[in-house]
């Protein structure tokens, strides 16, 4: 999973597999991060209420 783990190898299979995995994790983390930061900003800006929902 990580390059520092015993018996790690750099080959096409590992690059493709873990490349895809870290890419997906990056997308999910940045998506969630964006939502959290925007929610904090909106909250600090005072936007709230059922009327502005959906």
């Amino acid at each position: 999973m990580f390059p520092f783990i015993f018996e790690w190898v750099w080959d096409e299979g590992h690059i493709m597999f873990f490349g895809a995995m870290w890419y997906v994790i990056l997308i999910l983390a940045s998506g969630l991060g964006y939502c959290l930061i925007k929610a904090v900003k909106d909250t600090l800006a005072g936007g709230h209420g059922p009327q502005d929902h959906h």
Partner: peptide, 13 residues
């Protein structure tokens, strides 16, 4: 408010 905004933003994303 925070949860409301979070829900709203998550729906968007």
């Amino acid at each position: 408010p925070f949860f409301h905004n979070l829900s709203h933003t998550m729906h968007g994303a």
